[in-house]
Design a binder for these strands. Sequence first.
DNA 1: TAGAAAAATGGACAATCGTCCATCTAAAGG
DNA 2: CCTTTAGATGGACGATTGTCCATTTTTCTA
Lengths: 214, 214
Amino acid sequence: MPGKREQNREQNRQALIKAVLDSVSEKGISETSVSEIIQRAGLSRGMIHLHFGGKDNLLAAAARSSSEEYYDGLEALLQSGGDSPQERVEMIVRGDLSEPVLNRRNVSIWYAFRGEARNRSAIAEYSDTRDDRLRNMILNAFTRIVREAGREDPVLSARDATHGTIALMEGMWTDYLLHPDRFDRDEALRIVFRFLAALFPAHFSLAGAVPPKN
Amino acid sequence: MPGKREQNREQNRQALIKAVLDSVSEKGISETSVSEIIQRAGLSRGMIHLHFGGKDNLLAAAARSSSEEYYDGLEALLQSGGDSPQERVEMIVRGDLSEPVLNRRNVSIWYAFRGEARNRSAIAEYSDTRDDRLRNMILNAFTRIVREAGREDPVLSARDATHGTIALMEGMWTDYLLHPDRFDRDEALRIVFRFLAALFPAHFSLAGAVPPKN
DNA sequence: TAGAAAAATGGACAATCGTCCATCTAAAGG
DNA sequence: CCTTTAGATGGACGATTGTCCATTTTTCTA
């Protein structure tokens, strides 16, 4: 077991990362200064240089942390889910649009980092990993769905279905970013599933995806 | 006609805005300083304060300018297009994903501003306008399409179709942002139209949207 | 063309930025 | 308990930030 030294060390590292994510979500990247970070973390000025070697590295670590949190949650969800490919797709979509994942804080953080990713290679790197993991999960499911559909000429290749589904979810995130107030989670879910139902009518039923209207 | 005074004045204002957009696309918002801007514009330091009253206002003006350019292009495209609603949707989609609109520079700028929009109200404002204009254009078209479909129980309401289509396009932009190298414009178009064809088979044919495969 | 007005200049300014290190504190090992 | 060593502190530092204005230059008007 780790001694108190190591324990404190890790605790402070995490406190710095959390402080960055809090600040980025509330004030944006441009206002996330060293002073802001250490004030939120309640630590001393030198800690950033000590633990991360500089502010940029800390930002990159925070971006990675946020990304990993997202994926760990999604994969945990998949563990508990059914085995059929349509169930897996459904769980991913539901998970991706669920409140613990898609919320103001996460959306703010995600888009703030993306906006700067182009120019901060350290941040940009994690982005690909994230993307590939999600893409593979969905691609595996759609590959089975397309195969089961068993037509000679499928409406859509598994690759295209994956690409489109991810784009659809990404677009919903953007919608949330731009209109957090009027965003309707059920509506977003309904739309994604209607699109999927139109593409694969045998696999995605509308009834399962849409709450009764009354 | 405007005198040389007014002419120079407007010319310098535009030079500043262009300098901001260039810098944002190349270096990101965080590196777009006053020094960087005036150096690119080849103007003196005081110009920003003189013409815009401060850096923040200039950034907001640049964001608005970029947004207006996007919409003007899209609406010009619509003027020249056919009258049928499916043609209008098709033109919007094609326009939104065309090289003059969806390119590295614009994507960089767009996402950079979005990442900071949450915390800069001046920038956030233009975002709603932009969105509403596009949404209404598409909604009008889908309303006619749904009506023409003439079923009692349409697969999708015009509102949902609009929401989904916009999300799909937004998602393609995100895809371009994250993978500018491997992004395939034709593939993106194909996917959007296959989704639309699945939803409204009578209105969107695959043949029209997909270049021959060989 | 002389005077008035507007536009443009570029440096001064305080404030803030991120980095780094001399110093102090506290846990670990003998 | 004493020594060692890693961790933590907070201020000093030069660089850079955005703002603002006294001054100069250019255009317009009378």
